Computed example of a mutant assay.
Amino acid sequence: MINKKIWHETLHCHLGQYFLIDKILYQQKNKYHDIKIFDNSVMGRIMTIDNIVQTTEKDEFIYHEMLSHVPIFSHGLIKDVLIVGGGDGGILREVCKHKNINNITMVEIDISIINLCKKYFPTHSNNAYEDPRLELIIDNGLNFVKKTNKKFDLIISDSTDPIGPGKSLFISEFYLNCKKNLKKNGIFVAQNGVSFFQKNEIVSTYKNLKKYFYDASFYQAAIPTYYGGTMMFAWGSDNIELRLTNLEKLKSRIKKTKLIFNYYNPHIHISSFSLPQYIINTLDKS
């Protein structure tokens, strides 16, 4: 709900977070989403979709670095990448930093998200949409993975919560087709909500991933914007050794790229797969 000074998130019905609005920059409802963009003195510019915070200028780097670099450095030989969603451009920006990647396909259902973020969040994409390796496709993600004949080393699902159009990216059919479109030793990763308040979401994802991937798991990162605990990222691969890539190998791979990060590092990478016991217990029962 928005009034003159306060925006309140409605993801959870019995509790929430609020942001003071310095200035409303954009608000419009289209056939896919109810989109709002406003300035906040602490978190900078904020975009909400369907009354749920999607991204902020202040802490977006945590989410985008972890969803991108963890699978890329775990694999070590990523050449072809599919990004499903991610219209704000943050995942694309991070993926484009890897010069050894040959082809990047991005599928976004709502072109208005891309255009709005280019205007209001230019540092998210940082001109990554101009990268010649990118093929941008405006389509429903599930529809694309069902019909494409392309194969990828990495599929990143950067979706909204499983509400509205985002629902189709959390169902068994989507995971099945992502598996079909992965090369040998390919990796699938996806945002999977804040586990403390969204246990049903990780249980559902885990059950579905186990149908199609030998190694189904999660890793995590603490992201202030997504309140309620740690943000979970789903992981699926048929090669368990990729998730267990050791510290020295990670350090070597990172050093070769000469990349500089604000959150990600090899120690964070390894520790992110260490899940709290309540999550382990929940998954063991599923």
Rank of each mutant, 00 (worst) to 15 (best):
F152A: 06
Y212W: 15
N281G: 02
T225N: 12
N100Y: 02
K36S: 14
N40W: 13
T123S: 13
N127F: 13
S252R: 02
I171P: 00
H75R: 09
T123M: 08
M47E: 07
K146T: 09
H14F: 14
V70F: 03
V145P: 04
I138W: 15
I156N: 07
I187G: 04
R243L: 11
Q198G: 00
F213R: 06
G16F: 14
E173I: 05
F38S: 02
L209W: 09
L247M: 13
K151N: 11
K255Q: 13
S172R: 12
L242D: 01
E9A: 08
D139T: 03
V81F: 10
L242S: 10
K199P: 01
N103D: 06
F261R: 10
N102M: 04
Q28K: 15
L142G: 03
A222F: 15
Y214D: 01
K4C: 01
F233C: 06
S74R: 03
I279M: 13
K285M: 02
F73L: 13
R45V: 08
L250M: 09
T282N: 05
K150G: 03
D22V: 13
E108C: 05
I223T: 00
N40G: 11
Y278E: 12
N140Q: 08
L92M: 05
Y227A: 14
A128L: 10
T225A: 15
N262G: 15
Y18P: 00
K5Q: 10
Y264I: 06
M232R: 06
I163H: 07
I254D: 04
K147M: 10
A128D: 02
G228V: 11
H14P: 00
E60L: 09
N143D: 12
Y219R: 04
I137V: 15
I62H: 08
G87S: 10
D110R: 14
Q17S: 12
I268G: 03
I52A: 01
S41V: 09
S159Q: 06
D158N: 11
S195A: 15
Y278M: 11
T282M: 12
D80H: 11
I113Q: 05
N127S: 12
N40L: 03
G236Y: 14
D238E: 04
E65L: 13
E201M: 15
N265E: 12
F61D: 05
V203Q: 07
N126W: 08
K119V: 01
E108L: 14
L11W: 08
D153E: 02
L67T: 05
F121R: 07
N3T: 06
S68E: 01
K211R: 13
L15P: 01
V189E: 00
H75M: 10
G44V: 11
E60I: 03
E65D: 11
N126C: 11
V84F: 12
G86S: 06
I24T: 12
F19T: 03
D50H: 10
P122C: 13
G87L: 12
D80I: 01
G236N: 01
I114E: 11
E130P: 02
R253E: 04
I101M: 09
E201I: 15
I280E: 02
K210T: 08
K179A: 12
N127M: 11
D34G: 07
D238G: 04
H75S: 14
K180F: 11
H69A: 09
K179I: 00
N281S: 14
F61Q: 00
F121T: 06
A128K: 07
I2N: 02
D39R: 12
L283W: 07
N281Q: 10
K180Q: 12
Y18V: 09
K256I: 07
D22E: 15
G16D: 13
Q54W: 06
E241V: 04
